[in-house]
Amino acid sequence: MHREDSRVSGWPRVGLGALVAGMADLVFAMGFWWISHGVPPMRILQSIAAGWYGEASFTGGVQTAGVGAVSHFAIMFLFVAAYRQMATRVTLLRQRPFAMGAVYGLFLYLLMNFVVLPLSAAGMASFKDAGWVAASIAMHALIGVLCARYALAPGAPGDAGLAHGRA
């Protein structure tokens, strides 16, 4: 038995990656908006729930904040799982997880802001705050790296377990 076998691998690792990347993203967003605009953290979670409820999410209190939190981590799980599935077929994603993860994160930024949000009850994202846009793009690149790192089995990059479907 290899040492890597005793570490978290496979789908539990995807869940762990969703937790780590999701927390990093929430701490970033909550910190940014609290420091720069005085927006309370619960409102960030409610803004995520706005995808379901629109403006009504901001009057829903803890309930809509909870929906926002669950939605956020579910989306993050899908992000990590998607990278994992793609990495089983595309060697470059396993060989260069940091570079490809950063590219993946930028793709996620574009997907969320120009496809998912416009199709949701939240509507098109606002790009008025240049500081937020720049910081958000950088954070999405980091999120992509985290997705890649946790999507791959222990021993990444290029872990043979993932390449052979064992992870």
Rank of each mutant, 00 (worst) to 15 (best):
V145F: 11
P118S: 01
L93Q: 00
H37F: 15
G68S: 01
R43Q: 12
S9W: 10
S71F: 13
G66Q: 05
A74W: 09
W33S: 10
W11K: 13
G105A: 05
G105Y: 03
F58A: 06
G66R: 06
R94D: 06
N113Y: 05
A121D: 11
R43I: 14
A122M: 06
R7I: 09
G158D: 00
P40A: 03
H164C: 13
Y150L: 01
S136G: 12
A167Q: 08
R13E: 04
V133D: 06
L92H: 08
G165I: 01
A121W: 13
M23D: 14
A74E: 00
Y53F: 13
V90M: 02
W52Y: 15
Y150M: 03
V39Y: 10
M30C: 12
A160L: 10
Y104W: 09
L117W: 13
A29N: 06
G165V: 11
G17Y: 06
A74D: 04
W33C: 11
A122W: 07
F73Y: 06
G51Q: 06
T64Q: 09
G54W: 10
T91D: 15
Y83K: 00
A163S: 04
P97K: 01
V115L: 07
V27T: 02
M112T: 00
M139V: 06
H37S: 12
E4R: 05
I48R: 03
I48L: 02
G61E: 02
R13Q: 01
V8D: 10
S126A: 00
M1L: 13
L162T: 05
A160Q: 10
L45C: 09
P12R: 03
G144R: 02
W52N: 15
G31H: 04
W132F: 07
V133Y: 11
A50C: 14
A121S: 09
F98R: 12
G101E: 01
A74S: 09
P40F: 06
V39I: 07
V20L: 04
L117R: 11
H164G: 14
S120E: 01
A135P: 09
G60S: 05
G38Q: 01
G31L: 08
L16C: 12
I44H: 12
A18E: 01
A153K: 11
W52Q: 14
G165L: 05
M23I: 15
Y83I: 02
R13H: 10
G158L: 00
A151K: 04
F58D: 02
G158M: 06
A24S: 12
M1V: 10
G105V: 00
I35E: 14
A102M: 04
P118T: 02
I35D: 15
G61Q: 09
Q95I: 06
R84L: 09
V115F: 08
M30G: 10
K128F: 10
P40Q: 05
A81G: 12
A56L: 05
L111P: 05
V67M: 07
G68W: 02
G68R: 01
V103G: 05
L92E: 12
F127G: 00
L92G: 11
R89Y: 05
V14C: 02
W11H: 12
